[in-house]
Amino acid sequence: MNILLMLIPVALILVTIAVWFFFWAIKSEQFDDLDRQGANILFDEDLHEQKKQQPTSPKANDSEK
């Protein structure tokens, strides 16, 4: 059972990292629009096509992802 002495602190560190990532996700507004992203994959293909056609505004496309 001695391995527990080691593994529990390791688990705690992992939990802390998870919490940190979660805070980061909230801060970067990942939870602001939960309805939208699920459907985005449907339109993905066209975004690439658009990129080829519209090389003048690459920034705009990047920001949409």
Binding site: D32, D33, L34, D35, R36, K59, A60, S63, E64
Partner: peptide
């Protein structure tokens, strides 16, 4: 246009 984003919620 630099950036645009629509939030459906």
């Amino acid at each position: 246009l630099i950036q645009c984003n629509v939030n459906t919620t």
